[in-house]
């Protein structure tokens, strides 16, 4: 008799996971992302050739042309201006794009959450300082800022992390601050304070766990933006430097050979689009599953 009354209790995360599982586009996005991660990790094993191995006599071959450097003997997606295998370069490019997306968002999240939590919890001068800085960063022409930072620090993938983090934290800080402002007035936080818990413990154990939903959504939504920014900077010659393959610098190189090998510029672009598309699908799904209030 009891069994009918006590339905199995579900946690917030269990609930969210069930909602996400029902969202077919989001699941498709997740599957593509997992596939891309596998490709990135297994790159040396699955690439037909070394991505920086050149074969000058076989420059700019169309897809399907015979190849001396590829294990399977064919340039599946053609060859580039140095006779390198485009497919292998696209495969290795996955590593750059995914690591830029994930690492830059990790940095942005750590800084943004810290700043937002401090501003929201303590208010006053701290709040003023953080939020006015965020206002300034929001007014900055974003791409121009990235380009300026890359000029100042020099082109490399690490400086891309810095450039993206310098501006990116502001959005997360705003989000977390508004959540903390709301949560710090809740009775359970007051109870924690009455028990004499330290501020750090209240923020870390009682407030932040309740902001996880919006934070996860914002991180997921930030990844495609970061991937696009890296590709853009590399396209402008300010990001990842050749011969290391990045989808952005491949498209830049391909521009010069649009007539001799039109496919060259198409592949890395498709790779960017599929990756960003998958993260957007997952982001939309997570937003609906985790944070009904944010649903727009």
């Amino acid at each position: 008799m009891d069994k009918t009354l006590h339905s199995k209790s579900t946690s917030l995360w269990g609930d969210a996971w069930r909602r996400l599982k029902k969202n077919r586009p989001a699941v498709a996005g997740l599957v593509v992302i997992i596939f891309l991660i596998i490709v990135a990790v297994m790159a040396p094993a699955i690439s037909p050739a070394d991505p920086i191995k050149t074969d000058l006599p076989n420059r700019l071959k169309p897809p399907g042309a015979p190849s001396a450097i590829c294990k399977n003997g064919v340039y599946i997606l053609g060859s580039d201006e140095f006779g390198r295998d485009i497919l292998s370069r696209v495969i290795y490019g996955t590593r750059i794009s995914l690591s830029v997306g994930i690492i830059s968002q990790a940095i942005v999240t750590v800084i943004g959450v810290t700043m937002g939590a401090l501003a929201g919890y303590y208010g006053g001068m701290m709040d003023m300082l953080v939020m006015r800085t965020a206002d300034i960063l929001f007014a900055f022409p974003e791409l121009l800022f990235y380009i300026g930072v890359m000029f100042a620090l020099g082109p490399s993938i690490y400086n891309i992390f810095i450039a993206l983090a310098l501006i990116g934290w502001a959005g997360v800080a705003r989000l977390v601050r508004s959540q903390v402002l709301y949560l710090r007035e809740m009775e359970y936080v007051e109870a924690a304070r009455a028990q004499g818990l330290s501020d750090a413990r209240i923020i870390l154990r009682h407030i932040l766990p309740n902001c996880m939903g919006p934070i996860i959504v914002s991180v997921t939504m930030g990844i495609p933006g970061a991937i696009l920014s890296e590709a853009t900077l590399s396209f402008l010659g300010l990001g990842v430097q050749p011969p290391t393959p990045s989808w952005g610098n491949m498209i830049y190189a391909a521009r010069a050979y649009m007539l001799s090998n039109p496919w060259y510029s198409v592949w890395p672009g498709i790779a960017i689009m599929v990756t960003v598309f998958a993260f957007n699908l997952l982001g939309d799904g997570l937003r609906d599953a985790l944070d009904p209030r944010l649903k727009r």
């Binding site: 696009l228 853009t232 396209f235 649009m258 510029s265 672009g269 699908l281």
Partner: peptide
Amino acid sequence: ALAGISAPIFWVAVVAQLVFGLQ
């Protein structure tokens, strides 16, 4: 629409030049 916000603008530009300009 989702594809539209996922495509890098510089790549769309390059492909547009390729298709509508050169081909």
